[in-house]
């Protein structure tokens, strides 16, 4: 296991280098310099001031040198300062936004699996019945629903028509004076719709994956053996098949992360949740490039970490993987 872990961590190094290279090229190969963006807001800035600013950001140096400096700073978690008027370090800006986005996405991920697994099992055990077909239709529609549209519909239904749930923000105004229980309840109410939207995103794909994983396991010889020796269908499915069918889903959790993080831009913007996605959107609109690059890097690193955790969990659960024998 230690060897597997070491190998897996060493593999991260080239990926991290690649991530920094791509992020760096996106900024520096795109037409127009970052400084131009800052200048565009203020046409009065003269040529000299422009040169001074370029020097300040090190843009007058050769690209390779700039890259090395930038990566060096990155290693010390120095993401530069925001271009916006508060001029705060990007690291702090992201750090205060990250927890809410992470919490939201983790809850969404748990919800997603909690729903997708039973749906997948139902579809697989009732293969080719109306139930299975109904689930297939749901899955296809789920694939095609734009998340932001779903967010709007929910807003209309629960926020406007039924008036059950608040439609924006994290707290009700003045909720600071609430007692703890009421405060948490208020926040939970605010988070209902965002979490619904976030978890719906990959629910369809995940339940379809669960279905095929389950069907794959049910078709194997040991399941036939279990049935042949007279075990009840319930024991066969839930004790023998389920555990193996769940394994490949661990990888899917890792793969779902970039989608969730990317999707947070949409639901955080719509529901006015002060998370990283909203910060990213605001930074994009304000062309605040240090914040944009910082969040892109953080997003990619989160994905990397998520995949690592998923792979390690898989290896812990399945000895065939950690001993390098492969599945089947």
């Amino acid at each position: 296991m230690t060897r597997y872990l070491m190998k897996r961590i060493l593999m991260l190094i080239p990926l991290m280098v690649g991530i920094t290279l791509i992020t760096f090229s996106v900024v520096h190969l795109a037409p127009g310099e970052p400084v131009e963006m800052q200048m565009a807001m203020n046409p009065k800035v003269g040529k000299e001031a422009r040169e001074r600013l370029r020097k300040f950001y090190g843009l007058d140096k050769p690209l390779a040198e700039q890259y090395v400096t930038w990566v060096g700073k990155l290693a010390r978690l120095d993401l530069g300062r925001s271009f916006s008027s508060d001029n705060r370090p990007v690291r702090d800006k992201i750090a205060e936004r990250l927890p809410i986005t992470l919490a939201l996405n983790i809850i969404a991920l748990v919800m997603e699996f909690g729903l997708a697994i039973p749906i997948g099992i139902l579809a697989a055990t009732h293969r080719d019945t109306w139930l299975d077909k109904g689930i297939t239709v749901f899955v296809f529609v789920g694939f095609a629903v734009p998340t932001f549209w779903l967010a709007l519909l929910l807003m209309y239904l629960f926020g406007v028509k039924l008036n059950w749930l608040p439609i924006s923000g994290l707290h009700t105004l003045g909720s600071d004076s609430y007692g703890l229980l009421r405060y948490v309840g208020d926040m939970a109410k605010h988070l209902c719709m965002p979490i619904m939207v976030a978890s719906f995103g990959s629910l369809a794909g995940l339940s379809r994956y669960m279905r095929s994983s389950m069907l794959n396991v049910i078709g194997q010889d040991y399941i036939t053996t279990a049935r042949a020796k007279g075990l009840s269908e319930r024991v066969v499915i839930y004790k023998h098949a389920l555990r193996n069918a769940l394994l490949p889903l661990i990888t899917q959790a890792g793969l779902a992360i970039p989608g969730l993080i990317g999707g947070s831009v949409i639901f955080e913007t719509i529901y006015a949740i002060p998370g990283m996605g909203q910060l990213f959107y605001q930074a994009v609109m304000a062309r605040d490039y240090p914040v944009v690059m910082g969040i892109v890097i953080i997003g990619a690193l989160l994905t990397l970490i998520g995949n690592l955790v998923a792979d390690v969990c898989y290896a812990l659960a399945d000895p065939r993987i950690r001993e390098g024998r492969g599945v089947q």
Binding site: L15, I19, I22, T23, V26, I257, P258, G259, I261, G262, G263, V265, I266, F280, Y281, V284, V292, M293, I295, V296, G299, A300, T303, L304, N307
Partner: peptide
């Protein structure tokens, strides 16, 4: 590794 939507927006 990149959340595609982030990359596009960036």
């Amino acid at each position: 590794c990149f959340p595609t939507f982030f990359l596009i927006l960036a």
